[in-house]
Write a protein that binds this DNA or RNA. Sequence first.
DNA 1: TGGAGATTTGGAATGATTCTAAGCCTTGGC
DNA 2: GCCAAGGCTTAGAATCATTCCAAATCTCCA
Lengths: 141, 141
Amino acid sequence: MTTYRDIFTRHGLRCTRQRETLYAALKVTKSHPTAEELHDRVRDQDAGLSLATVYNTLDAFTAAGLIRRLPSTLGSGPCRYDADTHEHVHLTTPDGRIMDVPDDLSERFLDQLSDELVAELERRTGMRIGRVSVQLVTESR
Amino acid sequence: MTTYRDIFTRHGLRCTRQRETLYAALKVTKSHPTAEELHDRVRDQDAGLSLATVYNTLDAFTAAGLIRRLPSTLGSGPCRYDADTHEHVHLTTPDGRIMDVPDDLSERFLDQLSDELVAELERRTGMRIGRVSVQLVTESR
DNA sequence: TGGAGATTTGGAATGATTCTAAGCCTTGGC
DNA sequence: GCCAAGGCTTAGAATCATTCCAAATCTCCA
Ligand SMILES: [Mn+2]
Ligand SMILES: [Mn+2]
Ligand SMILES: [Zn+2]
Ligand SMILES: [Zn+2]
């Protein structure tokens, strides 16, 4: 059985009460919450957990690759966060929410993208591509 | 010959000196500038053009579909803007800049994505997909 | 168990964007 | 060409998300 402690340690992160609380809270939701939303959701468990810690922790998790940060798709407004680091496609709504595309469809989308193109681009630009991000943007009206 | 005035009119926008200046400035660059950067670039032409007008104008252009808004890929930091509304793939760097993927490669990427999948997703979710956004994210280190 | 160094915290600071309300300008009709 | 009506522009204030700060606390390894 792998505990959160194990996961944190493997990612070079210290294990703190706050980090366990936040990771657990992010892990159980499919809603891609904002820092504020997450802060609100853990308030009952740990009333003293500060918003600054939510930001610090989400930064640390993101840097460690434990979670993914999803910048606002609107241009203004808060980032959202996803504990599911498995490659998947997101559906973005005009009000800023983010939904997962069902796994079977997500997979079919991503399978269409050949690695050869990425390789050719890396050759041409000299840059290393870390990830191909696909978003389906829903119509405004 | 289609003037900027014509373009604005077709998009339901009034033609003002400020809008012409800003559209021209955005049209000639490939750098996906921020509102601030654009403001700086037009300072010599029109010293009185305010930053609020830059924001208002970019909002209006975006709403009209004349340009595209590119939210910060980092999560914090300013939006970038693109006068090229032709569907193309972007390469995003760890410092927040955005580059165009060469057109031939861009096209090959987008051609791989079948409309059938989009259609199936629309059927399943009941939402209309306006656009498929593909970003190639360069490795952080 | 001790302590070096990482983490947490409330509050202040920053940065990007939006709001406000007072003129100004564009447009369409005469 | 002249006149509204209403859209546009503007400086500055306000808002919102995020980052910074510095002091107190906690974690983990020796
Ligand atoms: Mn909160
Ligand atoms: Mn400026
Ligand atoms: Zn997701
Ligand atoms: Zn572009």
